[in-house]
Simulated scan of single mutants.
Amino acid sequence: MAACAPDPEPRERGSRSPSASGRTARPGEGLLAQWDADLLEAAGAGDAASVTALLDRGARIEARNEDGRGPLMLAALADRVEAATVLVERGADPDATDDLGDTPWVTCGVTGSVAMMRVIWEAGPDLTVPNRRGGSPLHPASERGHADYVREVLATTGIESVIDRVNYNGWTALLEAVALGDGGEPHQEITAMLLDVGADASLRDRNGRTALDHARARGYGVIEDLLA
Results as ranks from 00 to 15, higher is better:
G91F: 04
A147M: 04
W35M: 13
R144Y: 13
L227D: 00
A141G: 00
L180C: 10
R69M: 15
D164N: 14
D182H: 08
R144G: 07
L180K: 12
V222Q: 13
L154D: 01
L54W: 01
R13Q: 11
E224G: 07
D98C: 05
D67C: 07
R11H: 09
L32I: 03
L203T: 08
A2I: 13
L212Y: 08
A215T: 04
G109Y: 04
L32D: 06
G58Y: 02
E160S: 11
P186V: 12
R118Q: 13
V114Q: 02
R13S: 11
E89M: 10
G183P: 01
E66L: 11
I120V: 15
A173I: 07
L174N: 06
L31H: 06
L226P: 08
L54P: 03
D36M: 04
T157H: 04
L180H: 09
A63M: 05
S50G: 00
D148G: 03
G184A: 13
M193K: 11
R132H: 13
R132T: 13
G44L: 00
A25K: 10
S142T: 04
V166M: 12
Q34V: 14
A192S: 13
A147E: 06
V81M: 03
G58I: 04
A48Y: 00
V222T: 14
R11F: 09
D93R: 10
L77G: 06
A63S: 13
I190N: 10
I163A: 01
L195S: 07
M117A: 15
V86T: 04
S21L: 14
I223G: 07
L77V: 15
A215K: 05
R23I: 05
A123T: 03
G101C: 09
L31M: 10
R80K: 14
V110A: 15
M193G: 03
L100F: 13
A33R: 12
L127W: 05
V81D: 01
A141E: 02
G44K: 02
A45S: 08
G28R: 03
L212S: 06
R90C: 05
A49P: 00
A76S: 14
A217D: 13
Q188S: 14
D102S: 10
D213C: 10
D79F: 01
D79A: 12
D95P: 03
P27E: 02
V129R: 09
R151F: 03
L31F: 04
G70L: 00
L74F: 08
I120S: 01
G134H: 08
A201F: 11
I190S: 06
G22D: 05
D36S: 05
L226A: 12
R218W: 15
D98P: 05
S142V: 02
D213R: 09
G219T: 10
D56N: 07
R13H: 14
P18F: 11
R133K: 15
T52C: 02
E160D: 14
G158Q: 06
S17A: 12
P27H: 03
P186S: 11
A84D: 03
V51A: 03
V114Y: 06
A211N: 10
P18D: 07
C108L: 06
M73L: 14
T111R: 07
V178R: 05
R26W: 05
G219L: 10
G134A: 08
G70Q: 02
G181T: 12
D225L: 13
V51L: 02
R13V: 09
G184Q: 09
S161K: 12
A49Q: 08
V119N: 02
A78E: 13
